[in-house]
Simulated assay, not measured.
Amino acid sequence: MISEQHAEVEATVRAVLRDVLALSEDRVAAFDANTPLFGALPELDSMAVAGLLTELEDRLGIVIDDDDIDGETLESFGTLTRFSVAKVEAV
């Protein structure tokens, strides 16, 4: 069972992906934990990563240090959501 906080963070991650990458609501709504992100979404290039992370910081009230991010963080929707939930829980 997903906690209410997890569900809220997941909804925020979806909104940030939609807004920063200019993806359609339907496309982002179809993402599941295994949906690949970096390398699979042409919209998510290295320039977009910075904007995505900054927007997550602003909307979730977290701080993401450069050394927090590795290849796995943006590998899939699930890994990005789990990372974001962990950062929120650590605040």
Rank of each mutant, 00 (worst) to 15 (best):
E4M: 09
T73N: 05
S84Q: 08
G71A: 11
V16Y: 07
T79V: 08
S46A: 02
G71F: 07
T79D: 09
A15Q: 14
P36T: 00
G61Q: 09
M47Y: 10
L17D: 01
V63Q: 07
L21E: 10
P36C: 07
F31C: 00
G78C: 06
I64L: 05
A15Y: 07
E43L: 04
A30N: 10
E4R: 11
D68E: 05
F83V: 08
L17Y: 02
E25I: 14
L17G: 05
A11W: 03
R82L: 12
V63L: 09
L74W: 06
D26N: 12
D45S: 03
V49N: 10
T12V: 15
A15F: 02
A50C: 04
S76K: 05
S3P: 04
E72W: 00
G39Q: 00
R82I: 04
M1E: 13
S24H: 12
V85H: 15
I64W: 04
V85S: 15
L41S: 01
E10H: 07
A29E: 14
F31G: 00
A15S: 14
E25C: 08
A48N: 12
E75S: 15
T35Y: 14
V63R: 13
G78Y: 06
A22I: 15
E75W: 10
R27W: 12
L44N: 09
L21K: 09
A33L: 05
A50Q: 09
T35S: 14
E55T: 14
L21M: 11
V13C: 04
G78R: 06
A40I: 00
L52C: 04
T73R: 02
L53P: 07
D66W: 13
L37F: 06
L80K: 00
E55S: 09
V20M: 06
V49G: 14
T73Q: 10
T12R: 04
A29F: 06
V88F: 01
E8Y: 04
A33I: 11
F77W: 11
R59F: 02
L80G: 00
A11Q: 13
N34R: 15
G51F: 04
I62Y: 03
G78Q: 06
A90P: 10
D26R: 11
V85Y: 14
V49S: 11
G39A: 04
T79H: 08
S3M: 13
I64P: 03
